[in-house]
Design a protein around this nucleic acid. Structure first.
Length: 211
DNA sequence: ACATTAAGTGATT
DNA sequence: AATCACTTAATGT
């Protein structure tokens, strides 16, 4: 019965009562110590973990044994990667490690289909989880692209400089933006950055290369 | 002096 | 990175 209270306290505001009942009936709560590996790659997944307290990290380990953190899971969060497993494979693609002491609710994979069918609040929960992960993914995409844009601008300027055989290029930020299919604001910012790095000098309608 | 266009900035998504 | 909204600086008439 204490189990029920625990679940209600953590998940009560996002899950319906019936869903909570179901979770109480079929799931089990386990205490996990810090730095415990709960799931390893290749493990057969019989239960999916939902973090009740503490923090877990989901990690992908590559051939060299280097671990790459995919994301962290805090209270109320479940591992999205394990959701997709229910639909297809039964083995884990990732490592699941508790970063801190905490509690997990383990729920049998077998019964997950029913949850999806029966409980709207569960579907909503799963969606939210996916959404969050997707957002994180997009963010990293952004920063990757960002890293490359200043390189592109630099290359563009070098090329222009060679073609026109001058270090003083007559061009507007807008024109560069058009050619690199980005916005003028972005070009201005990156050019400013390059200027601070001492690679170029900016004037109106002109850019001087200092290398 | 006034209008127009280029460039810079902060905040938000 | 993109977009918006707004400011500031440079130029042309």
């Amino acid at each position: 019965m204490e189990k029920q209270h625990k679940l209600e306290k953590v998940l009560g505001d996002i899950f319906s009562e019936k869903l909570l009942e179901n979770l109480v009936e079929h799931g089990r709560i386990v205490q996990i110590e810090e730095n415990t590996q709960v799931i390893s790659r290749g493990d057969e997944i019989k239960e999916i973990p939902i973090v009740l307290s503490g923090t877990a990290k989901v990690v992908r380990t590559d051939n060299k044994g280097e671990e790459h953190i995919l994301f962290y899971l805090n209270e109320k969060e479940a591992c999205t990667a394990t959701f997709s497993i229910c639909a297809s494979t039964k083995t884990s693609e990732i490592d699941f490690i508790m970063e801190t002491d905490g509690e997990l609710l383990l729920y049998p994979v077998k019964l997950m289909d029913n949850l999806t069918k029966e409980f709207p609040s569960w579907r909503y929960y799963v969606c939210r989880n996916y959404n969050k992960r997707m957002k994180e993914f997009l963010d990293t995409m952004d920063s990757v692209v960002f890293m490359k844009m200043d390189q592109r601008i630099l290359k563009y300027l070098t090329k222009a400089s060679k073609a026109l055989n001058t270090k003083l290029i007559t061009i507007t930020h807008q024109e560069i933006a058009n050619d690199l299919s980005t916005s003028r604001v972005v070009v201005s910012r990156l050019l400013k950055q390059l200027e601070h790095e001492g690679k170029i000098k900016l004037y109106r309608n002109r850019i001087e290369l200092l290398f």
